[in-house]
Design a binder for these strands. Sequence first.
DNA 1: AGCCTTTGACCAGCG
DNA 2: TCGCTGGTCAAAGGC
Length: 155
Amino acid sequence: MVSSGASAPVDADLDEFNHKGNTATGPQTSHVEVRGSGLSVAAEKVSNDGYNWRKYGQKLVKGSEFPRSYYKCTYPNCEVKKLFERSHDGQITEIIYKGTHDHPKPQPSNRYSVGAVMSMQGERSDKAFLAGRDGNTSQMLLEFSLLPFYYYLLQ
DNA sequence: AGCCTTTGACCAGCG
DNA sequence: TCGCTGGTCAAAGGC
């Protein structure tokens, strides 16, 4: 569960989502919070989570000092949306997924030699967002799991 | 040539 | 009913 369970520290705010009354009928919303990762690669990885996204908007929401980007999955018949909020440093402040992919992931343009990344993304792609929220531990895991990817980029 | 990002405007929901 | 805010659209430009 160490290397495969946490691609990103997931703070599942499904409670808040439930509270609003949109659960089974509405689209699933996953609230992913990635804070404190100084690696700009973190943003890259989260952006390239195995799917292709097309940006369709950007808005500065109140309460946040940084603009929020709106992405949509480019897969045909897949209307999963992703709200991406990051600071000017490239640090991710908030990521919100709306919906669930019901299609296989397209071929990632980058072929990591590290299968671990793929596998963990594969697990993450579902809705296994329920386990693994240890605060600092998950943060550490994030950076740790990113090391191979980061190393790959450096080459 | 095609897809993606950018950016301003438009629209709908809510207080 | 009006104003505000968040979300989406669409045109233009870039890669």
